[in-house]
Design a protein around this nucleic acid. Sequence first.
DNA 1: TTTCAGGATGTAAACGCTTACATGTCATAA
DNA 2: TTATGACATGTAAGCGTTTACATCCTGAAA
Lengths: 355, 355
Amino acid sequence: MTTLYDVARLAGVSTATVSRVLHGQDRVRESTRIRVQKAIEELGYVPDNAAQSLSRGRKEVIGIVCIERPADHHENMNLTYTDELLHGVESHIRTLDWSLLITFWNEVIDPGFPRLAAMSGKVDGVLIGEGSFPARLLDRLAARVPVTLIAGPPDERAFDVVTADNWAGAAAIVTHLVTEHGSRRLFHLDGPPNAPDASERRRALEEVLKEHHGSRLIGTTHGSFSVESGEEGGERILAAYRGDLPDAVVCANDQMAIGLLRAFGRAGLSVPEDVAVVGFDDIFPGRFTDPPLTTVYQPMRTLGERACARLIERISDPGLAPALEMLPTELVIRSSCGCPPGTSIRQPVRQRVME
Amino acid sequence: MTTLYDVARLAGVSTATVSRVLHGQDRVRESTRIRVQKAIEELGYVPDNAAQSLSRGRKEVIGIVCIERPADHHENMNLTYTDELLHGVESHIRTLDWSLLITFWNEVIDPGFPRLAAMSGKVDGVLIGEGSFPARLLDRLAARVPVTLIAGPPDERAFDVVTADNWAGAAAIVTHLVTEHGSRRLFHLDGPPNAPDASERRRALEEVLKEHHGSRLIGTTHGSFSVESGEEGGERILAAYRGDLPDAVVCANDQMAIGLLRAFGRAGLSVPEDVAVVGFDDIFPGRFTDPPLTTVYQPMRTLGERACARLIERISDPGLAPALEMLPTELVIRSSCGCPPGTSIRQPVRQRVME
DNA sequence: TTTCAGGATGTAAACGCTTACATGTCATAA
DNA sequence: TTATGACATGTAAGCGTTTACATCCTGAAA
């Protein structure tokens, strides 16, 4: 491995000069610069980041922890959500020449802190890719490095949070069902109890129904955000309401809606004639389901960008007060809600007014 | 930031002892160990990886570069392929407590070497997430750190390659079309010219057709592996063959097959009645298209695991001779090939015999 | 010719860890 | 009692950078 010393020796200068050429802030005589650059080129020298980090006290690496949910080997859709997020983070980080360390965190496999601790020693800050991350681990992590939460609870006080306006998005889609399609008896296929985005969506659903007399929630069941849990949810609904189905099922995300569609399809039901179904997130496969899924778009990519930007701000200035950044959503109307086949409308959702 | 010295001071021992407790190889008196552990706990100490790396000469981080293809903002499916791959890599790496640094590499945005060079300074080795990576950059990268190619060309001599048996998979699916569905006039929606996996599939297609007289390739067009390029390909086919469509279109991957299905759908064609369509990769959304896609499954997750394992072997022993590891595929029959709706068969594909 | 400012370059400490080697301690054997 | 080992622990060098500070050089001004 070639080091700064090798370059310095070959160019006949000191390591300080090489370093100066590398970073180009201090003045170096043109002829020297060229000589050094030639040596660098010739040796194919690349600075060792470990030594740089140690010296500068900064690694220029941030970590992202993606929550890994159990999934059938052949149906892993975890990243369909995280995909855009990662791209967003990367598109911001690349402009700064920092790097991204990715960790999949699985509650079952890694209940303890050690793996997270080890990762925290390799980065300057950590992004939590989703809201439902155990507080106990979060606190320990945050004791070590700055942390920002993506899709965290909007009422978080201790950490930076960047999230979509789940409340407004869910309110919009439920309002659409109730007012455009006259849904009266709604069922909620909810997310995990501890997921903050799911909670926001649930609250929006309840509040909208409260304002529309005649429409009500006839039941709820929790799923894990996975396709499988959507299927199970569908079977539970079929078992409980056969012959007396809800008008519409509101799913906490698209994966579960897809699972639901499958379960209903197997049971010979047709959507939206027998029952309407809507999702949340606007993941790609939702366009190809039969019928195509009505859902709410969250700007995942922008979420990633903003979260990354905020984390890096905080790394530079740890004194910053934690803040909430809430991004607007869009209602994406296709036909699983009852709109005619071929419908494809995107409409911006007004941000919730926080009192 | 708490350091080893702080811990040592609090526990009343030397840094060497703390280090020994941390790594637990040398013997330390039980009472000392406990005292040190208590100090570590109390201070929330986590070793700084930069210092460790510098000292040990190893970072315990590997990089993966994922090729980023241009994609419509709302239709990014890059990671549907990479998703499983990443999980595979991570599932292996986590057992060793190493970490994964992810870089999206976009030929257009980053034509030069600097960003890759910078990343190479942060890792012990790199995985190239796909075969079509410019040789010129590859060589420079490999001069710095060990490199292993995922889905690289099977005839590569200079690098480790871990890939699926694309030839055999493609041969199987084409054989299915020709022998089971009597396809005579095939069209090939090929991948980018420089993608080694696409080349293998193309060669298999040609060789199979050579052995089946009566069936032939009536045309080819290249796409970029994206959904959009699949749509464009579809439109080109429609323009060229309207009224005289091919019996079947063999697509170099599922994304393009999905795009093709869309273009055909818009044109009022029905698949597989008017024309059969098959893909490659078995990505998740392929189950939900109409009709569900017949394709070839590649063990992406295993690919990731094996590539990671091999890279780490090479990092430990740089003297190892480069090797090829080829993983078997499976034929996944659904109904876009002409098999009856509801068909869902997976059958192992025999590895190609390399002479 | 000498002096001096300023630019160019060199020197060496520091970053936080690991580890080879040195030292210290204690029980046992002679 | 002293020598001997085995085990426990400490000392300090070294990993490859960055950077504050010291030094050297050059040309212009006096």
